[in-house]
Nucleic acid binder design. Structure first.
Lengths: 230, 230
DNA sequence: TTTGTGATAATTGTATGCAACTATGCTCGA
DNA sequence: TCGAGCATAGTTGCATACAATTATCACAAA
């Protein structure tokens, strides 16, 4: 792993953790001195982050962390509603026994975690949920589809999504997982796609329910950063 | 426009024109000396091309122009069938008078070019066709959807596609354009999406009809390049 | 003949210095 | 008092030198 790779992951992690606020600038010299690298690998990492859509490059002025508006979130869900069903549609034709077992195991884990009520369990569910979806993408066996989803399903959107769920929504989501696995066992791509579509639309509904908080917070943060740099 | 930008477009153009064959390596020093730039902007251009999917980076060994197999083409069409209808579905709700007029004008131009029989006209149709689709994407007003399509609809696939069309297929394609415009005028997203879906599936059928030629040629070219570099 | 090992050459990866560009704030003039 | 122009500081863009890594080829031993 090269220095540029390391810097890339570090900066990305910081953006996700909120270490770098939306709207703030990531200076090549500053982070270079901090991590004890020259500007060259920093530059390369930043360009990768730009093409990933995490930061925007302003010529001769710097790399700014992008902010997420409610509109952006809607756009992402609109695309997920198209692409995620396609994932399972393909997976249904290609999935193998071992992968089905793995998916079942993930579904088991998530349901067990559901029994517990604390916040910590929610975070664990989110982790397993990501594994579940990742395994589906693997089974779909389409590098391009995989890449599009990775581009789109930016973590800041999905990462705290389970926290917005009511208990009912959480249980329904678990049911969706079960049903997706069942549909895949039957090699019924359309069934799987239909449930996945519902799964994403349900997630969208939960997200949209609390429009204002997430949105204005982000934008305020961005506005503040803009002021502070000027 | 920076040096890195210029280099980026030059290399991209050469890949499209076949100047750089699939499987061949693009050396930083070689092209740097040729274009009289240092390796720095070349590197940056190559990394952008990597993240665009035009070349693949092999650590410590170089940047290789990727080859297209028939399987890749199928994958792309599968995604276009999902995404392009979504473009017009959105466009139907948002498109404005001026844009509709522009689309009509493009449709007119393409039909006029259809009258002529020569190969040159086909190329011109392809250009206007690209403008037509680009205008639709603009009308859809979804930066992420636009980006996804730009990532996917790599030109080597679509660029010579009209040459494979029979006269019937060409005329039908023109009819599709007309009908899409008509559906958008009616603000009927589902109608537009249905026609667009047919439009893409027709293109897919024409492309698939001549499987072997494109495929083996590409792969042969790649194999040859691999041998020559060793 | 084949396989393992080491030297060597070629290529990318990184550091550093300088150039170019942009924004900001100050000064001068109207 | 306001606006235009200019100087300056700060940042990115680029060139170049050097380091690190990897593939290749020759050669020797089994």
């Amino acid at each position: 792993m090269t220095a540029a790779d390391r810097v890339y992951y570090i900066i990305k992690q910081r953006i996700l953790n909120g270490g770098y606020a939306a709207g703030s600038y990531v200076r090549e010299t500053a982070i270079g001195e901090e991590l004890d690298y020259s500007r060259t690998p920093i530059r390369e990492a930043l360009r990768r982050l730009v093409s990933d859509g995490w930061v925007e490059a302003i010529p001769h002025h710097g790399a700014r962390v992008v902010g997420w508006t409610q509109h952006d979130v809607e756009e992402v869900f609109e695309l997920r509603v198209l692409l995620e069903p396609q994932v399972v549609r393909r997976a249904a034709k290609r999935i193998r026994e071992a992968q089905l077992n793995l998916l079942t195991s993930f579904a088991d884990q998530m349901e067990m975690l559901c029994e517990q009520e604390d916040e910590c369990a929610i975070d664990k569910i989110a982790v397993v949920n990501n594994q579940f979806h990742a395994e589906l993408v693997t089974a779909a066996d389409s590098p391009r589809l995989q890449r599009l989803l990775e581009t789109i399903v930016q973590v800041p959107v999905s990462r705290r999504s389970f926290h917005h769920y009511t208990r009912d929504e959480l249980l329904r989501s678990m049911q969706h997982h079960r049903e997706i696995v069942r549909a895949l066992q039957s090699q019924d791509g359309e069934w799987a796609a239909a449930i996945m579509r519902a799964h994403i639309l349900a997630a969208r509904a939960a997200q949209m329910r609390q429009k204002q908080p997430g949105n204005t917070a982000q934008v305020e943060q961005q506005r503040k950063s803009e002021l502070s740099t000027s």
